[in-house]
Design a protein around this nucleic acid. Structure first.
Length: 306
DNA sequence: AAGCATCGCAACCGCATATGG
DNA sequence: TCCATATGCGGTTGCGATGCT
């Protein structure tokens, strides 16, 4: 895939936006919209690349942006969604009106991650090593959030963890994946799998990518009812691997997908790796399986039966 | 009061994907 | 079908603000 050369740097301004530039961008978009970001700066008379304009608009200038501190509710939502979705900030942002992916990402890295880490360090229990026993007490999220209260108002005390660039604190790090320990019993059945793919280790990144397509489509269409449905699913059913759409009904539909990897995978214990079991188990039936899956879900036109 | 350390946020970078010719 | 371009996304960085010694 060819990639557009990142904005011709010749003569283009970088760095913080000035109020004047903001005003120009706002005026232009209010007047003409932003059909073509690439052409926009030129037409608006801005010495910025389109990418920069888009970012400035979506992250800062958009009128529907909610500024200010995140509420407790929002933070809890982020924590829960992150457990389910991993570092898919845009997906998380989609569920938080007025908040941008960038903002959420920042909040996560500067506040929530540390808070969870602190909580996990101080609050690890014997359940930690037993995925099936990992349960978030009813107050876990609240507790984690309460840790915020313990922070200084600016979250700047000596106990703060240094700014970490190391992979250890990347999404795949234990520190981040550890929220498992704070999962609610309801959530854990789903998050165990979705989180595995998103934050367990690098080897799962591929599966993340592949699944992302699926999940994105699904997620955007799945309403809250679905999630309540999923979240309230029987924990003892260890077939939640792809509990992502009732369109699929595949969890236990072994008749429909007699040889599908999913069917096989559903027989696997919950704590198995999502990616390796489902998406990349080197089973040749994968493609057929996914094709069937999409076909059934109506995402692809049905081909004549072979 | 000065210097240093740390935080928080805006912005940038580069990759992946979508789209259109 | 291929290729070039546009867009979206997540990771990372730079720097001003703030706190600490």
């Amino acid at each position: 895939m060819g990639r557009a050369p990142c904005c011709e740097k010749m003569g283009l301004k970088k760095g913080p936006w000035t109020p004047e530039e903001d005003q120009i961008l706002i005026n232009y978009i209010n007047q003409f919209g932003h059909g073509n970001w690439r052409a926009l700066p030129k037409q608006a008379g801005l010495l910025r690349c389109g990418k920069s304009c888009r970012l400035r608009w979506t992250n800062y200038l958009r009128p529907d942006i909610k500024r200010g501190n995140f509420t407790q509710e929002e933070e809890d939502t982020i924590i829960n969604l992150h457990e389910m979705l991993g570092n898919r900030w845009s997906a998380i942002a989609a569920r938080l009106p007025g908040r941008t992916d960038n903002e959420i990402k920042n909040v996560w890295h500067t506040h929530l991650k540390k808070r969870l880490k602190q909580y996990n360090n101080g609050g690890s229990t014997s359940n930690e090593n037993n995925p099936k026993k990992r349960q978030k007490t009813a107050t876990t999220v609240a507790e984690a959030a309460a840790a915020k209260g313990n922070d200084s108002s600016k979250d700047k005390n000596k106990n703060n963890i240094k700014k970490e660039q190391d992979p250890v604190n990347c999404p795949n790090s234990p520190a981040v994946s550890s929220p498992q320990e704070s999962l609610s019993s309801e959530v854990s059945t789903v998050t165990t799998t979705s989180e595995n793919h998103s934050s367990s280790n690098n080897s799962n990144m591929m599966s993340t990518k592949m699944e992302t397509q699926i999940e994105d489509e699904e997620f955007s269409e799945i309403d809250e009812n679905f999630w309540s449905e999923v979240l309230s699913a029987d924990n003892s059913s260890e077939f939640q691997v792809v509990a992502s759409s009732d369109q699929l009904q595949a969890q236990t539909d072994h008749d429909y997908f007699p040889s599908s990897p999913l069917a096989a995978a559903t027989l696997e214990p919950v704590n198995n790796d999502f990616g390796s079991n489902i998406l990349f188990d080197n089973d040749d039936t994968n493609m057929d399986f996914w094709y069937n899956l999409f076909t059934r879900a109506g995402d692809l036109p049905e081909l004549p039966q072979l």
